[in-house]
Structures are given as C-alpha cells and as structure tokens.
C-alpha cells in the first residue's frame, strides 16, 4: 500500500532507508526479536538496486533523498514481500518529471510481472496511460467504468466532471 501522503503516512523521515524498508517485515530479518542487520541490509540493497533508488548508501536518512527517491523507498518497503495486490495512492505526487517517468515504468513492470496494481490518481493522463481498466469516482461513488476499448480522455473527463455542475446547481 503506497499511501497518498508519504511524509505523513509512509516514511520515518529521520530514519535510514533500511529502517524504513524493513519496518513492516522485521519478523523476516530477525530471530527471536533480535535483528540481523546483515539480512536487513542485504534484502534492502537488492530492492533498492532493482528499483534504482539513488542514495549514497542504504544507511542514509530518508530526508536526505529527493521526493522521487523517497517514493521509490516506499515501493521497496511494500515490494519486500512480493504482494499480489499493490495499491498506489497518488504515486507521483510531489515527484519531479524524470522520477515520474521512472515510477510509471516501475508500475508497468510490476503489472507485467503479474501483480494486480490498483492505481488511485487524480491526474487523468496518468490513469489513461497506465490503466487497463478505469473506474471513475465522483462524490464517493463509482460513476463510470471503461476498459481499454472504451477509454478516452474525453469520456473519462466527461464522467468525472460533466454532471458536477448539476450537483452544485
């Protein structure tokens, strides 16, 4: 689960990359509650190499990383256990253009590996570019569904905004 607000809901900004990545998985890198720092570092290094996180070392504090790299640390955190479903809530918020590209490619490669990715986004270009199936929500309800044949920018935007005016009036 990649949360919407990474600083508030995702990361311990003053802890290291390793600490953040392994936090939900400490049972896998410890015996009788005692941590194996070596196992932690090894598993984290594998993940950050695969996700191409640009960091001096995996002991670096998360707040020294760029927004895009922080986001990739969160990907690493939730890919540690090979989930079957990956929920990405606004994965490119506060991320620069280059890193956005990398995150899109990452999401595509996860889907290609067979993970179900649930992408939540308010940027319609992002949704149209990545999704195989789109559900449009408005006012807490699903108001439209598109598949690869029926999706188009106009149709999605229309479903998202067209009747909003009526509601206000």
């Amino acid at each position: 689960m990649l949360p919407e607000d990474r600083k508030r809901q995702g990361l311990l900004m003053l802890r290291s990359v390793v600490d953040n990545v392994t936090l939900p998985h400490l049972d896998q890198v410890s015996g009788a509650g005692v941590l194996s720092k070596r196992a932690e570092r090894r598993r984290t290094s594998e993940l950050i190499a695969r996700l191409d996180v640009r960091t001096r070392s995996n002991g670096a504090l998360v707040n020294t990383l760029s927004g895009g790299n922080q986001q990739k640390v969160l990907f690493a955190k939730w890919l540690f256990r090979r989930p079957r479903v990956f929920i990405a809530d606004e994965p490119t918020r506060g991320v620069d253009v280059g890193a956005k590209r990398a995150i899109y490619e990452l999401i595509e490669s996860l889907a290609a590996e067979g993970l179900a990715v649930l992408l939540i986004s308010s940027e319609h270009e992002e949704v149209l570019g990545l999704a195989h199936r789109i559900l449009v929500m408005r006012g807490g309800r699903i108001v439209a569904e598109f598949d690869e044949q029926t999706m188009s920018e106009d149709a999605v935007l229309h479903a998202a905004f067209a009747t909003a005016g009526e509601r206000v009036a």
Partner: peptide, 15 residues
Amino acid sequence: AFGRYVYAAGGNAEA
C-alpha cells in the same frame, strides 16, 4: 524489532 518499533511509534505514529 521492539526497539525499531519504538523509534517508529515516536517518529511517525501514523506511518
């Protein structure tokens, strides 16, 4: 692991 949880609880309870 307990120690790590202490840091996590104090650093960012929601996360």
